[in-house]
Design a protein around this nucleic acid. Structure first.
Lengths: 197, 197
DNA sequence: GAAAAGAATTAACCGAGGTTTAGAAAACGT
DNA sequence: ACGTTTTCTAAACCTCGGTTAATTCTTTTC
């Protein structure tokens, strides 16, 4: 996938969302990245104030707490926007890393420059607002799941939400997504297996 | 506070945020609500697809799980926008109630009509996107707190984040905000008291 | 100010999930 | 196919927070 193909893929993606965005304003050069399975697009603590677009592949957002525990915030499959909203918007260091779970093709723009060029386009602003609405609603559901549901329930919800990931990614990633240790997840799966028979 | 004062207070709020919004587009009538301490602006399960503006007062967003446990998602103090982004955007039933912790003055617009009239104003769209960014970043921090931090740490964070609420609202509300029972919070406070001396 | 209702504390008990360690099973590189 | 490394499972033990219930402390309310 060369630079021009990536640019087209990026723009086509927004069109398929139903927004008629005027790309003539955008004169920025797009940067291209090829990320190998297991490698990182950026790491916790970096300044990742870029807008990344994942063309193909699968990534996870993972952060490590002070005590050294991994927490997988999200999985994301291309094509879609990825990156740290907080770092883009506040120019702060990112609080998580993005790790490729499959080989990925990614391109990026500087968010500040991109936004400066696109903020005059109403269709873009609407699209951006819609994107924010979506990720907010998703986060809200996830927040309440941690408080309201047991780990077992969160595991079952994960299986329903990401049926294709259940068998393709290591269980420790699943465990860290639902906020428990791999040992605890193994126990839960054992319990489920028994009660199903 | 009469209708005209409320309208002015609403518009002034956006100006102080630094957005030069063209209110001439907005011809909708604003509805006014006076909510007494303890009462609800709307309840879980309602269709609350309105944009609410809390002029003065304090509210909490609270949801009750299937098993009957209360969870306080947020506290919000006027002046600011309140309501359910999800319900506004997806026309779904709200998943939480908004309860007044003090007497409140609130006004509201139908979100669909409001958005239809304002979506042509770039300043408004930027302001809306900025609002979404803010609440998203806040949710993201809260999500990771539930996974990474102990209940004790979450309590201390609450005290730092809402110093003025710590002594003015019932402890059970604090407990339900940090995702534990009132009994557990009492134990934690006891432990802190001892270790501080 | 007394009675009633609500909120906070304390104690005893329980269970889900964390921790550590050891061993089995899969995945991987050469 | 082989050994190496990573991942998963299993068991023993521990801790934090949930549950229940009794008791005290605060607010309301009349």
């Amino acid at each position: 996938m060369d630079r021009l193909q990536q640019q087209n893929s990026f723009r086509t993606y927004f069109n398929t969302l139903g927004y008629d965005i005027d790309w003539s304003r955008l004169t920025l050069p797009m940067e291209c990245h090829a990320i190998r399975k297991g490698d990182y697009l950026f790491q916790q603590g970096d300044f990742a104030n870029r807008l990344y677009f994942l063309h193909t592949g699968l990534v996870r957002y993972v952060s490590v707490s002070d005590e050294g525990k991994e927490f997988t915030q999200t999985f994301a499959k291309g094509p879609r926007i990825i990156g740290s909203t907080k770092s883009m918007v506040t120019q702060a260091k990112v609080l998580f890393s993005i790790q490729a779970l499959e080989d990925c093709v990614v391109s990026s723009y500087s968010w500040r420059d991109f936004y400066a060029q696109m903020r005059d386009d109403k269709a873009f602003l609407e699209c951006y607002a819609h994107f924010l609405e979506t990720i907010f609603i998703h986060k809200e559901e996830r927040e309440s799941a941690f408080v309201k549901h047991s780990a077992e329930r969160r595991y079952l919800d994960f299986c329903a939400d990401f049926p294709e990931l259940k068998s393709t990614i290591p269980q420790q990633h699943i465990a860290s997504y639902i906020g428990i240790t791999p040992v605890a997840l193994s126990r839960i799966r054992q319990r489920l297996k028994l009660s199903r028979s």
